[in-house]
């Protein structure tokens, strides 16, 4: 019996460690999936008098991308966002998280502006409402204003091709 149990125990250990290695502890499942995107009303980066609200985008699929100029990974992601905006398949709304607006404006001038509009979340309150714990994070929101997916970390070409774009296309096919 012991001859049996020792290799069995070893195999169980290997399987568990194997599963553990393929998981990313930084990716915390979001409780917002399939829940309505929390409401907010924030000034636009370009014009503080214009208020941006999620309701403005009801009826279309859109991405909410949380970014900041102090966020190194956001810089890595930026070129991909510009690329996505050129494809013109889904509008990207920026949420400028705890940033200085002057720096953010300069960043967009220098690196290109992939955003349809950018909401300024200066104190990070809205990001807390969205359960953001790092930047960049990207929410995919459907026509009814429901969060359907959250991408943590920079959007890579693979993530865009394999996950985000197919989902956007699927959601575009759903009734509004």
């Amino acid at each position: 019996m012991a001859r049996f149990l020792v290799p069995l125990g070893f195999i169980v250990l290997v399987v568990f460690l194997g599963i553990g290695l393929t998981l990313d502890p930084k990716e915390i499942p979001s409780p917002f999936i399939n829940k309505p995107a929390p409401a907010f009303s924030l000034p636009s980066l370009q014009n503080a008098e214009i208020k941006i609200q999620p309701e403005d985008y009801k009826g279309q699929v859109w991405l909410l991308n949380v970014w900041a100029t102090w966020c190194v990974a956001c810089r890595a992601e930026h070129q991909m966002l510009v690329e996505i905006s050129r494809q013109n398949v889904v509008p990207i709304i920026g949420l400028n998280y705890k940033d200085e607006s002057a720096l953010a404006i300069r960043w967009l001038q220098q690196l290109g502006n992939p955003y349809k509009t950018v909401a300024v979340d200066a104190d990070g309150r809205v990001a807390i409402d969205y359960g953001v714990y790092g930047a960049p994070e990207t929410f995919i929101i459907d026509k009814k204003g429901i969060i359907r997916y959250k991408h943590i970390g920079p959007i890579t070409p693979q993530a865009w091709q394999q996950k985000i774009l197919p989902l956007v296309q699927q959601l575009n096919g759903e009734a509004g």
Binding site: I28, P29, P31, Y130, G131
Partner: peptide
């Protein structure tokens, strides 16, 4: 907190 960040 749980509503925003989950049980984690």
């Amino acid at each position: 907190m749980v509503a925003r960040y989950g049980d984690f």
